[in-house]
Write a protein that binds this DNA or RNA. Structure first.
Lengths: 113, 113
DNA sequence: CTGCTATATACCTTGATATACATATGCATC
DNA sequence: GATGCATATGTATATCAAGGTATATAGCAG
C-alpha cells in the first residue's frame, strides 16, 4: 500500500472519508453507519491514518477522527494536467470530431465497437 | 474492476494516461517508452478503453490512442466535496489547532505518534 | 479496586483479484 | 511476407479484504 491511489481504491475507505466530510466521527459511529465490524473499521482507519488522510482527537475512551484535507491535494495535483487538458480542449475536440464525422473520407475510423 | 478508482490505482495505467496527456501515441510507442511487453500494454489499454479513459484512431496497422478527458471528471467530481472542505477550512483549521496546542488543558491530545 | 466501554491490534483463514511474463494465434494492412 | 496490434492461454505471484476471535489498554463509573 504505497500511493494515495491505492488508499482510495477501497470502497469502504472512500465511504469513511465521505463520512468525515461533514464532521468528525468516533470509531463507533463509523462502525454503525457503515455496518462494519469494529476491527475492520480500525484497520481501515489505520491505513488512512498512516497515509495521512485522517487524524484523530482523543476524547475519553473514544477517538474522534477527522479529515486531513491536505492529503487529497496529492490526487488533485495528479489530476491537474488532465484537468487542463479537458477544460481547454473538450469543446474544441467535440467540434473537431464532428467535423471528422462529416468530412473524413474514411481513411481513419473513429471509435471502436 | 468497477470504479474509476480501481483503474487509476494501477501505476502502469497512470503512466499510460500521463503519456497521453501530451499527445496521442501508438501502442508501440507506449510499449517502448514504458518498457513493457506488448500484450501487457494492450491489456491495460483495453481496461482503460472499456472504462472510457481512452479511445483510439485506426491508422493503417497502428492504433493511435488518446485521452478521453471526460472520464477523469468522475474523479474530479468525487474530489469536489473534499476540495471545498480544504480550501475553505485549511487555514482556519490550522489556526484552530494552533490555538488548541497552546491553550487546551490536555484533556484532548492532538496527533498520534 | 472492579468492571465496563471504546478502540487498537494481533492472528488466522479464506477467497478474490490482479499483474507479470511468456508464448501463440488471428487479423488487417502494407 | 512483414508489421502492428488484439487476444487467448497458462502459470506464478502478490496483495488484499473480510471475517472471526482473542487480547491489550486506557478511561470512566461506581
Amino acid at each position: 500500500m504505497v500511493s494515495a491511489f491505492d488508499i482510495i481504491a477501497e470502497p469502504n475507505r472512500r465511504a469513511i472519508l465521505s463520512l468525515l466530510v461533514s464532521s468528525e466521527q468516533s470509531v463507533g459511529e463509523i462502525e454503525s453507519r457503515l455496518r462494519l465490524p469494529q476491527p475492520t473499521v480500525s484497520k481501515h482507519l489505520r491505513v488512512l491514518r498512516e497515509a495521512g488522510f485522517v487524524e484523530f482527537t482523543v476524547d475519553a475512551q473514544r477517538r474522534l477522527y477527522r479529515l486531513r484535507p491536505e492529503s487529497l491535494q496529492e490526487l488533485d495535483a495528479w489530476l491537474a494536467p488532465f484537468r487542463r487538458f479537458w477544460s481547454a480542449h473538450v469543446d474544441a475536440l467535440e467540434r473537431h470530431l464532428d467535423r471528422m464525422d462529416r468530412s473524413t473520407p474514411a481513411k481513419k475510423t473513429r471509435r471502436r465497437k
